[in-house]
């Protein structure tokens, strides 16, 4: 099962440049056209499930506006024995 992740967008910094939208390998990012940030840009959002927390969006983000989280998978303890 692929890892599950999600992003948090700092809307003060996001300028809606769409570099992360293009870079996302899962293609689950898009601009939220229904909202505006305090600076007047459409912020980026996750529009579907499938984020793996790979952080490629954060690597290409020029404004360091994204925080990326990933779910820690619980490992079976008995497997070592």
């Amino acid at each position: 099962m692929p890892a599950k992740g999600w992003i948090e967008v700092n809307e003060l910094h996001c300028k809606g440049c769409e570099l992360c939208v293009q870079a996302c390998p899962q293609e689950v990012m898009s601009l939220d056209k229904t909202r505006l940030t305090p600076k007047g840009y459409h912020p980026v959002q996750l529009h579907a499930e499938g984020c793996t927390g790979c952080a490629i969006c954060a690597v290409v983000c020029p404004e360091a506006a994204l925080t990326v989280y990933r779910q820690i998978e619980s490992r079976p303890v008995a497997a070592a024995a």
Binding site: K4, G5, W6, V9, N10, L12, H13, K15, G16, C17, E18, L19, D32, K39, Y41, Q45, L46, A48, E49, C51, G53, C54, A55, A58, V59, P62, E63, A64, A65, L66, T67, V68, Y69, R70, Q71, I72, S74
Partner: peptide, 30 residues
């Protein structure tokens, strides 16, 4: 935005570096 997964352990994969201030840059988008 999809809600963070409830009741799971999480780790931060990436966050804004501490050597940057919280100032909004004057750079054009992108």
């Amino acid at each position: 935005m999809i809600n963070p997964l409830p009741n799971t352990h999480t780790q931060v994969v990436y966050q804004r570096p501490k050597s940057l201030t919280t100032a909004v840059t004057h750079y054009c988008p992108g």
